[in-house]
Computed example of a mutant assay.
Amino acid sequence: MLTLYRPGTGLWHRLPAGPKAAVLMMIVLGVCLLPVSYTSAAIAAAVCVVCYTVPGIGPRELVRQLYITRWILVVTVAGQLLFLGPEEAAANTMRVAAAVVLSGLLALTTPVSELLDALERALGPLALLRIDPQRAALVLAVTLNTLPVLAGLARDVREAQRARGGGQSLRHFAMPFLVLALKHADALGDALTARGVR
């Protein structure tokens, strides 16, 4: 399974998965509860910079995460500017950016096995509702790891188009991307079936 995890020895890497997820969730919640203002946007940006400049990650990774999510941020700021003012657009877009990059920090510093164990423990109470916590955790972990795989497939298709001298046509992009995505889903399904997951 492809993962975003980057081995390291920094503070975020040393924290156990459960407490780390709780800390990051509280930081994201704190940023989202800030009042709508330019000051809140600046605070959200500063929080992201501080979290990523902890030894073991670095600001370069923050820039990379923002670049990966650029289209989400463009759509967010465009929609906000269309219906709200510039101050609201800045604050809300920075909230979204902070939530995305801080969530990415969890995936970057936590191996999938640890993340899966922490999710399973957190979802333990679902057993009272006759929902298997192991399966629920596996679904969440697979979802988290499938998104970067699909982003990588999209990048590969675009690079192949450029290498062949093709344009940026959505029609020529969609079919090969869909075929590769379905092949990945089929391979993932086979791997899960081979491990006894139904």
Rank of each mutant, 00 (worst) to 15 (best):
A46H: 02
G10L: 10
A137P: 09
T69W: 12
A78S: 10
T146S: 12
L140M: 12
G196Y: 10
L24N: 09
G166E: 14
R64L: 14
Q134G: 10
R135G: 05
A187K: 14
R198F: 06
T76C: 13
M26K: 07
S169E: 04
V50R: 06
T109G: 04
F173D: 00
T93D: 01
C32N: 06
R14V: 02
T9H: 08
V77Y: 06
P133C: 02
G56Y: 06
G104R: 07
C48Y: 01
A45T: 11
L24C: 08
M26G: 13
Y67D: 06
A90D: 02
M26S: 12
G10T: 08
I43N: 02
P148W: 11
R162A: 15
T143K: 11
L2V: 09
L24Y: 11
R155T: 13
M25T: 15
A98H: 01
V63E: 02
W12A: 04
L73C: 00
S40I: 07
G124V: 05
G196E: 07
D132G: 04
A22Q: 13
A151M: 10
L108A: 13
V49Y: 10
A98D: 00
T110P: 10
V142T: 14
A42R: 11
L128F: 12
R60I: 12
V31N: 03
A78W: 15
P16L: 04
L115Q: 13
I57E: 01
A154Y: 03
P148R: 12
P16Y: 10
L128G: 11
G167P: 02
L2M: 06
V149D: 09
P133A: 01
G196S: 03
L115Y: 13
G196I: 05
E88N: 06
L116K: 13
M1Y: 14
L33M: 11
G196F: 07
P59L: 15
A191G: 14
T53G: 01
G10D: 03
R64V: 15
V112R: 15
